[in-house]
Simulated scan of single mutants.
Amino acid sequence: MDLSTLQKKVDSIRPYFPDAWEVSCATEVASVYFPHMIIDNFFTEEELDEIRKHQAPVTGKEINISHSLIESSGEIKSSVFDSAFLTAVDQRYRRPLQAILGELCGSKQALYEFSDFHMVSTGPDYQHAIHDDIPKKLLSVVIYISPEHNNGTFIHQSRYDSTPVGEVEWKPNRAFVFSRVDRKTWHSYAANKRDQRFCVIYNLNVRKAYKAHWAEGNYLKFLEKFLKNE
């Protein structure tokens, strides 16, 4: 997919987006193929106020993840937020995110079964390994929350190239959105050695990896996972 095609796809679904969203897109980061969108002003101020209450105190290389789950049926599973808050989030954002998934990888759109809504607090020295995201993540969405300045998401040429080629820069209330491409969407993250790093991970998921492998055209992996019912 070239940039012109992606821009046309994004323009076609703008009516689904909340009015406050400022959306841009790109197919590469520093010449590495990595189709993605950046959304500024993702959450409302009221939502941000509630989310910020749940930043965990972490130091050094610590990481703390507070898990919540929203089923496609609307059922909420969370020890962090009350159901009313996550129901409102789901009603506001599920449709635009599904529309984005449909344009980034249309073959995955019908596979959606549930959403993650996780609070991720990492200490100043935490570093996360290079990865391309697991197949069950149909649409990956990370929203930077606080502090005002930190590292964003680093983009890599390969799993074994530790020097990033570029970065999706940090900005509070900015979302970095993509649909994984097997062995291509290599990325990592790390705090800036001074401050905690606090994000929301808001993914659209399927439970069986083999379904995603089929949608990606990765038929050998599909067969492997299908035979294991994984």
Rank of each mutant, 00 (worst) to 15 (best):
S83E: 15
A84V: 08
A88K: 10
D90R: 15
R92V: 12
Y93C: 13
Y93P: 09
R95N: 14
P96V: 05
Q98R: 02
Q98Y: 00
G102R: 01
G102V: 02
E103A: 01
E103T: 06
C105V: 11
K108F: 03
K108N: 05
Q109V: 08
Q109F: 00
Q109W: 00
Y112L: 01
F114M: 06
F117M: 03
F117Y: 08
V120D: 14
S121P: 02
T122H: 00
T122E: 06
G123R: 06
P124K: 07
Y126T: 11
Y126A: 14
H128W: 01
H128C: 01
A129S: 12
I130V: 09
H131M: 02
H131Q: 07
D133K: 10
D133V: 13
I134V: 15
K137G: 06
S140D: 06
V142A: 14
I145V: 15
I145W: 13
S146E: 15
H149W: 14
H149E: 15
H149V: 15
F154L: 14
F154N: 13
I155C: 06
Q157W: 05
Q157K: 15
Y160I: 02
D161T: 12
D161S: 14
P164S: 11
P164E: 05
E169I: 05
E169D: 09
E169S: 12
W170G: 10
V177G: 01
V177C: 01
V177R: 01
R180Q: 11
V181M: 14
V181H: 13
D182S: 14
D182H: 14
T185D: 08
W186E: 06
H187M: 12
S188M: 07
A191D: 02
D195C: 06
F198R: 03
F198A: 08
C199R: 10
I201P: 00
Y202Q: 01
N203K: 10
N205I: 03
V206L: 00
R207V: 10
H213C: 09
W214I: 02
W214R: 05
E216A: 06
Y219S: 04
